[in-house]
Design a binder for these strands. Sequence first.
DNA 1: GCGGAATAGATGATGCGTCATGTACGTTGA
DNA 2: TCAACGTACATGACGCATCATCTATTCCGC
Lengths: 177, 177
Amino acid sequence: MDGPSSPIAPSGRADAGVGTPWLDADEQRAWRAYVRMQGLLAARLNRELQLESGLSLADYDVLVQLTDTPEARLRPFELQHELQWEQSRLSHHLARMRRRGLVEREECSEDGRGAFVVLTEKGRQAITAAAPGHVGVVRRFFFDGLTREEVAMLERLTTRILDRLSDADAETQGDVG
Amino acid sequence: MDGPSSPIAPSGRADAGVGTPWLDADEQRAWRAYVRMQGLLAARLNRELQLESGLSLADYDVLVQLTDTPEARLRPFELQHELQWEQSRLSHHLARMRRRGLVEREECSEDGRGAFVVLTEKGRQAITAAAPGHVGVVRRFFFDGLTREEVAMLERLTTRILDRLSDADAETQGDVG
DNA sequence: GCGGAATAGATGATGCGTCATGTACGTTGA
DNA sequence: TCAACGTACATGACGCATCATCTATTCCGC
């Protein structure tokens, strides 16, 4: 739970000649601010959530996905797709959550390899108890500081970056040029 | 290296009555996009940096701070202030970097408790080799997707959130409020 | 049907981040 | 001058994330 790098280039490099892709002064400042913001924000959200409910952000995300599903159960690979997590991260995390009684494992008759992750009553109570506080923290630290135009722009902007990241993944996978 | 939570509220809660601080639909979308973006971006930056140079983002940040200083050495608490890291995280991380030969420890004559963290030649070579590629990745995935206005707005916006986070810290510390 | 590939998921090793706690040194004030 | 307090830093335990690797099953072409 930390974040991308801060000052980006060593020894005050900024706006160097063509060929080297350094950032200019505006970009440097923006990058530093972004990086620091996301690091502190994530740390704060994690800490508050942990203190108030004993859940980590990762737990929270998994539980939300499960409650958003009719039967409160999902195949791990579906969960993986929703959360965009690495497979082994999910596997390890589900194992830990199972140990804590937040979810259960259920065999899958249709596919002998697979399984279902099922929300337990304890899991449901945990997410129900945690959600209002967590949303409140997000609102207090994030949205209360932004105008509606900024929120809209933020969505456009982050979505665009997201597309670039996905495109790069697709290229690496599918061997397109 | 992951990120804040994704869908924020369980079971499609959005725009509920007053009292409960749920997010409305716009905020939900913006939050989801932001969270996913920062998670994937951080993962990507970390992975590329690791592959190309064997450094983590955390290593990179420490090394940049050191190279930005005249004597390439800093007191841990200075580093801590620059990076905004928890003290024990820094301590652990410096220990690991020392084991790998990226930094050295030097006793501090002025303050018997303290020490200096000194950049080694190996550390300098590592950061020098890593920087262009890393900056390139940041540019490719992030800044190339943004207009200058967006960069400017992003800086304003993140700086504002940052202030809110700092204010909250100050309140918790100094018992104001 | 069978052999090879793809898919679903688990696991061990290792580095990282946080919390709680410990230790040593400095500072301050009665 | 010395006790109380604050500061600088280290450490152990533990949960988390990633990488490499492993197993079991299904799919697909022949």
